[in-house]
């Protein structure tokens, strides 16, 4: 328990990647491969405001998001964007690290070396894992994000952003 707390604290302090996606929105990779929805996009606009939501479509000149308010934003009005494609599964790494720290009980006094090593390696691995599903503009171009949009082919003609339903949350 204490080891898990240390790992959790370490992961909090290590600068793990965060996102504003509602709980249960992001699918784990295994689920996402058969899902028809987009990832979670966060935009920092040039006027200082922010917008976020499911990435519906993206082109060289516009980004369509379905969040609390559906928005179509010209990319010229965006300062930077961050797309989180899937759930990073950092919890799995943290859990494994906690269990690993506990397993050093089998190392006798050598646990004074192996337990801190577990915490250091586990924290670094968790931090690294948290960034795995992220795509940022810049340095990427907007068109490079389309693979993780609901409509990677672009906004379909005849489909209105206002009529689209948000993705149901996983429980």
């Amino acid at each position: 328990m204490r080891a898990s707390a240390v790992v959790a604290l370490g992961l909090m302090l290590c600068g793990c990647a965060g996102n504003t996606a509602p709980p249960g929105f992001l699918d784990p990779p295994v689920v996402a491969q058969a899902s028809g929805y987009g990832g979670w996009m966060q935009l920092k606009l040039a006027n200082g405001t922010r917008a976020d939501g499911e990435l519906i479509a993206v082109s060289a000149d516009s980004v369509w998001l379905l969040g609390a308010t559906p928005v179509a934003v010209p990319v010229t009005a965006v300062k930077e964007g961050k797309l989180t494609t899937v759930d990073a599964e950092v919890g799995k790494v943290a859990g494994a690290t906690g269990l690993g720290v506990l397993s050093t009980a089998s190392n006798g006094l050598l646990l004074i070396f192996t337990a801190p090593l577990w915490i250091i390696v586990g924290t670094a691995a968790g931090s690294s894992q948290s960034y795995t599903p992220q795509r940022r503009v810049p340095p990427l171009g907007w068109a490079e994000l389309n693979a993780f949009a609901r409509f990677p082919q672009g906004m379909p003609s005849g489909v209105s952003l206002a009529q689209l339903r948000p993705k149901p949350r996983r429980r």
């Binding site: 784990p28 990779p29 990073a88 799995k92 859990g95 494994a96 397993s103």
Partner: peptide, 17 residues
């Protein structure tokens, strides 16, 4: 515990094309 750790650590990444 080692087996458990390895199994639990089964974090993934998705390659989409």
């Amino acid at each position: 515990l080692s087996v458990g750790v390895t199994a639990l650590a089964c974090a993934h990444r998705l390659e989409r094309s």
